[in-house]
Design a protein around this nucleic acid. Structure first.
Lengths: 154, 154
DNA sequence: ATATACAGTTAAGCCAGCTTAACTAAAAAG
DNA sequence: CTTTTTAGTTAAGCTGGCTTAACTGTATAT
């Protein structure tokens, strides 16, 4: 299984570089928007997951409902989030990004992309093809993994 | 340049999945250690960059020296960081992780790796080889990019 | 129909991070 | 040898996130 070790090594090196870079990027971007990290993270969550309830937020970040509600409220008042009543359960709220909210995080994503675009410029055409193929494989696998929830816990 | 578009698309999909996953992971891990995100991020910075001064921290996170100094002090008192005088410049301090600090963030990294190891299990041997090759290419390019500082600004 | 559980809000209060401002001490500049 | 920068620390005070606790209103169970 030396091949497997090779694989591990490659992916670890990549993660080190990539994670450091992107965390730095997100941190500075969040700061530049004037939003706090918790607030910004909620926007990211909504971007990724789509419509959520308040308790989805609190679970995701491991905070109380009260805390989530307060954070959400600030984001609603700043116009980044819209909060509507769930017609099927009038206790619950449907949270989602407003256009303003979408635009903001899209801007952050674009900035992150810009880095990898620069990175792409360093590659030859064949390399780019190889990388694209590999990343598609990884993305596919990641999505499969996400679909099956916690297989090792009974 | 359709190839280039294909590349962009692949890498963007991957980034979306990967970033969301790893940010969530880091957030929860940091929380589980009892450290705040700012404190935890400083440990990450030291892990990545090695020995730093206080002002390296403040620059990196775009905070004042005062704030960095205070955060560092807490980490020193908790035993995650050691702070020594720079023999070449007695104003400056040399910050670095202690063994305890190294162990902590190593543990976080291992958790993150565990996910991609699961991911690897979803791949065939050939796929793994392809992915490993591609990631090595990317890592190499990323390091080159990091070496040349801000080429577009004059 | 009444009791219980659930989704979310509100208020009080704590704590951590951050800033400004004032300070110490060492290095560089003149 | 003075003056000015530079690296870092300290203290006071503000703000924002988070928690607990009490509460509203809606859905579910008995």
């Amino acid at each position: 299984m030396t091949k497997s070790l090779q694989f591990s090594q490659s992916i670890r090196s990549w993660m080190d570089v990539f994670m450091h870079r992107s965390m730095r990027g997100w941190g500075l971007f969040a700061k530049s928007t004037g939003l706090s990290m918790p607030q910004f993270s909620i926007l990211m969550q909504l971007h990724h997951k789509g419509v959520c309830g308040v308790s989805d937020i609190s679970e995701r970040f491991d905070i109380t409902n009260a805390a989530a509600s307060q954070l959400v409220d600030k984001l609603v008042q700043s116009g980044f989030i819209k909060r509507e009543e769930d017609p099927h359960d009038r206790r619950a709220k449907l949270l989602n990004l407003t256009d303003k909210g979408k635009e903001l995080i899209q801007q952050g994503i674009e900035e992150r992309y810009r880095w990898v675009d620069q990175l792409a410029e360093k590659l030859t055409v064949e390399e780019r093809a190889k990388v694209a193929e590999a990343l598609d494989i990884m993305t596919q696998a990641a999505k499969e993994l996400e679909a099956e929830p916690a297989q090792q816990a009974p």
